[in-house]
Design a protein around this nucleic acid. Structure first.
Lengths: 358, 358
DNA sequence: CGAATTGCCGTAAACGTTTCCGATCGGCCG
DNA sequence: CGGCCGATCGGAAACGTTTACGGCAATTCG
């Protein structure tokens, strides 16, 4: 009865229905909708319009069944880790970035659930095979996850952001932790500080180790002494930062500046200073890492090394796409996978806790 | 040969392969793996073990194709909104809760991307039909989204958390904003405060309006006067809170306590107090709403009305499941959809900004 | 003891696509 | 004018499952 406004529910309009109504075969309809060359421009346009009028939506499961590819990638993000608040506010930005980058590349996103420990058959690899996922993006590294390890060891393309595992078809993207830490220390140095201490994260985590390395390199380059007591290990949480601050400020020669490998610990150090009636940044300058939301809310606001979530997400999908076999590429078994990690630059945000003028 | 440890890549082991190896038909294999009754316990166990040994993973696209259901629900979460930091830290907890609740109910999760405005065919409804999604969970309400409206008007079951739209197969779950606000005011009242002001969110948003209503109700019940100047509208962000605080504290009879409808605004109000050399909570008590991460990091720590993200997420999937047609239920067209919104209680967290003793 | 019931299983038809293999039809070149 | 070629299309076989239907034995019941 004439063209319908949109998405009429003539219920279940499929490719056969389109073929019937436009007097061609299903093969032609398929070709028309998929922009194949073997259709005349006229019929293609006719079918296109009809499909749009009837609100036709292609059945993706059927497509993946026959094409053997789903245009879908899986997302692994361990909520256990997230509950600990580790990279907490960070994740949301990553997720958002990954999602938009993937949709721009015409991929769909499926959220994978961490497999139950009691079900031996439930694994990430299983889920990938079940849904014909073409690749996986991993957002945080659980301490050591057997499921992740077996996935990384498989032939499933994986891109991990700040992950530790490695495998034949795996690429890691990460912020330039070392350079970020270096920039922070250098910033404090140009402010005139010479006694700069650091509060690290758990050193078995790669980002924590890299940030410490950057700190050391900067100090060495700038000719700053790093007494052993100036390096205190924390756990990324508030309290550990406060305790570390207490300890550092009680030293015989206390530091005049602290670089903390995480914002929460940096804020904890600021609390420690406040408890001693020290003024930040006058008596003690503080720089953190990550740029969590709270960094802009505390007083004084916290200078920090911001990670570029957008860039990280985009780099991850770009890296993953490099691992996928495109329509015309050689199969991935024959391609050399570049194992060099993708490094994303950070940005130093100078705020109140290290403002020169104050 | 013999039993393999796990997930051997005998490449593409499917139901036919299992049938061949175990000497039965594909029908029997399917029945065995799906726990149908018409299989003997012996063969079921045999097939089970074989499947496990070969690392068989059922092809979900094929299953959804023939069963006409995907066991998958879609998740809509507008990242545009998220970029504004509105409910920002909140979302991640919701997402996590929704995911685990859904996976416990054996549903898969697909992240939907906000449709491009220039493509008329791309809509949430289209995506739902393409992937055979059985329902949708909406995490935040974009101001007014045409795509969301057409989705809500369709026959697709929707559960929204803090959403404004409504439809025939739509249910909304939300925190008990009014009761939360009431509890906050009552808490301040028992602390001895009689001049309690409030900073609201944008009043066209349902949560903001409800929190204001709760504030008013509590004041009325407790016999507190609410002069017009005691109600200041903000925008949920830090600066608006600080400006509102400035204005409130400059009044002839300034309030001794402030209830802010959002934590960022509450922190802003604390900044305003600090700028006037007022001590929190001695000179001014402050209570916020949401319990964002920063609430526990600022000094003094911020009392706040915490939303129960876990409960919200679980309520949303519970509500959604009520809308879905289970295997034995009547089709949803004949069921009466209970339109009453699901209300989740909040919890008052008393911290430093309103501590009695301080 | 015959018939009906029950338990277990195989055959085959779907589900909605894509794609290989031809088929038809003009037109072009030799 | 005949064969060849490119463009355009249709027929039909897949893809991996589920499930209606029917068959065959063993068991039960009248």
């Amino acid at each position: 009865m004439g063209p319908c406004p949109l998405a009429q529910n003539g219920f279940d309009v499929n490719i056969r229905e389109l073929a019937r109504r436009s007097g061609v075969s299903t093969a032609t309809v398929s070709r028309a909708l998929n922009d194949r060359a073997e259709v005349s421009e006229a019929t293609r346009e006719r079918i296109r319009r009809l499909a749009s009028e009837l609100g036709y939506a292609p059945n993706e499961p059927a497509r993946t069944l026959v094409r053997r590819r789903s245009d879908t990638i899986g997302l692994i993000w361990d909520s256990g880790q997230e509950a600990q608040g580790l990279h907490n506010p960070f994740l949301l930005g990553l997720l958002s970035a990954v999602r938009t980058a993937l949709s721009e590349a015409d991929y769909h996103l499926m959220l994978l659930t961490t497999p139950a420990a009691d079900d031996p058959d439930a694994s990430y690899l299983q889920a990938v095979r079940r849904h014909n996922l073409e690749g996986v993006i991993v957002l945080t590294t659980p301490p050591d996850d057997r499921c992740l390890r077996v996935l990384a060891a498989s032939d499933v393309p994986c891109a991990g952001i700040d992950t530790a595992f490695t495998g034949p078809h795996t690429v890691r993207v990460s912020s330039d932790n070392a350079a970020g830490a270096e920039a922070a220390v250098e910033h404090l140095h140009t402010l005139g500080h010479r006694r700069i201490a650091t509060i690290t994260g758990p050193l078995h985590l790669p980002p924590a180790a890299e940030r410490l390395a950057g700190y050391r390199r900067a100090c060495e380059r700038l000719g700053l002494a790093v007494p052993e007591e100036y390096v205190v290990e924390g756990d990324f949480f508030l309290d550990s930062g406060q305790r570390a601050g207490d300890r550092l400020l009680a030293l015989g020669e206390p530091p005049t500046a602290i670089f903390a490998a995480g914002d929460q610990m940096a804020i904890g150090a600021m609390h420690a200073a406040a408890d001693l009636n020290l003024s930040v940044p006058r008596d003690l300058a503080v720089v953190g890492f990550d740029d969590i939301d709270a960094a802009a809310l505390v007083r004084p606001s916290l200078s920090t090394v911001a990670q570029d979530q957008r860039a990280l997400g985009e780099a991850a999908v770009a890296a993953l796409r490099g691992l996928l076999d495109g329509p015309d590429l050689t199969p991935r078994s024959e391609r050399t996978v570049s194992a060099t990690p993708r490094i994303v630059p950070t940005r130093l945000l100078v705020r109140g806790s290290s403002r020169p003028g104050a």
